[in-house]
């Protein structure tokens, strides 16, 4: 696939992933632009891989977790973050969702990345561990800690019998 073709097709989904990861659309835009810039320089190599898209997504995670990105703490004030689409009958639900976005934003970056890779990208723990460069048990403990901070309880599963004639 040509680089320009890849960008045209996949940029929106990369931008969505990066926004969920970083919590801010302007920062996601910055990260995706930087990553695509670097991907362009090595596109022949990336295109020859089995899953180029997964590789670019991993570049985004690494960029977000990098020292360079942590050192830049500028926040543009002109960005419009909040939509005013809340209506009276479901405002409570919106409030809960916005509070969740706020709690997500305050998570340590690695915990956030682990949560997003499991619950948004749907990766198994072993792949998350490979992507973050740590052990599977570390991924589990980070997610468990993050869920406590996010105040999420996963309801206990339930068990029922299946009739014989199955």
């Amino acid at each position: 696939m040509e680089f320009t073709e890849y960008v045209r097709e996949q940029r929106p989904s990369l931008l969505r992933f990066a926004t969920v990861l970083t919590g801010q659309a302007w920062l996601a835009d910055d990260v995706v632009s930087d990553v695509l810039g670097r991907a362009f320089e090595r596109w022949d190599h990336i295109d020859s891989l089995a899953r180029p898209h997964a590789y670019v997504r991993r570049m985004i995670v690494n960029d977000y977790l990098s020292w360079r990105r942590r050192l830049l703490r500028t926040t543009p004030t002109s960005d419009i973050e909040r939509s005013s689409t809340a209506t009276a009958d479901s405002s409570e639900q919106y409030a809960e969702r916005d509070a969740m976005i706020g709690r997500l934003r305050r998570l340590p970056r690695r915990q956030r990345a682990a949560v997003v890779l499991r619950y948004y990208a749907g990766l198994p723990d072993a792949e998350i561990a490979a992507e973050l460069g740590c052990r599977t048990s570390t991924v589990r403990s980070q997610i468990s800690r993050a869920l406590t901070t996010l105040r999420i309880t996963e309801e206990a599963p339930s068990m029922t019998s299946i009739p014989e004639e199955r």
């Binding site: 990066a18 926004t19 969920v20 969702r97 969740m100 976005i101 997500l104 997003v116 996963e154």
Partner: peptide
Amino acid sequence: MSTLRTLNEAFAELERRA
């Protein structure tokens, strides 16, 4: 306390912003 559903709603809202 929230559930995973709220987390998914938060993800959907962030997607919309993107």
